[in-house]
Amino acid sequence: MLQAIDLTKRYEDGILALDHINFEVKEGEIFCMLGANGAGKTTTINLFLNFIDPTDGQALINGIDSSKEPLEAKKYVSYVSENVMLYGNFTARQNLDFFAKLGGKTDMTKEDYYAVMRQVGLQEKAFEAKLKTFSKGMRQKLGISIAMIKDAPAILLDEPTSGLDPKASAEFQKILLDLKEKGKSIFMSTHDIFRAKTVADRVGIMKEGRLVMMRTREEFLEENLEKLYLDYMQEKSA
């Protein structure tokens, strides 16, 4: 569903942010991309969303090259950023309604929106509250509900649990697994090795724009993911 083929990005200032990255996220699979800040995780997501153009290679969503047919490609993907920023003057439901319509869901009812917000664990009183009153955790939950209501086959998550308290992180984990059960292909960039270990079917480690390691669930459980990660990071500092 999500496929990076020799995906490369060199910025105008000459910095090589991604260097011939290759990976694939299949249906019903959670792929966690680990890496330090600046390793290229967010750049990868930006290339899938066509926020930037690749220097080389392809970012395919459902087989569609997102740099060539971005509008078609984006029909098959949802996105949750590190800091879900929505319209502060609108209520949670109004935000959900707007983004649902952008995602092509034009026949949703108020009850449908409430049901999704309940599903992600938002409190009832927050449904009609203005978003500017929301905490980060609440905004992240709403971001997830936006991704859920779009019901796209692929989901891109950019450090979605960053800044969330343990309870919210645990709830988030449950939601991810539910989405996986529904057959969604999930690409999650994260620093959170513990969370990755819990939910990922595969993990990759990025370093200085390169995908230096990729392991299946069986492999990383066997090899101790924390140690693997630290070894690769130390290699960097060395």
């Binding site: 509008l71 984006k74 950023s81 092509g104």
Partner: peptide
């Protein structure tokens, strides 16, 4: 700056 532009353009919005 607010991040809402990216949120909207992550969809199939021309």
């Amino acid at each position: 700056e607010e991040g809402t532009l990216g949120a909207a353009l992550a969809n199939a919005v021309p």
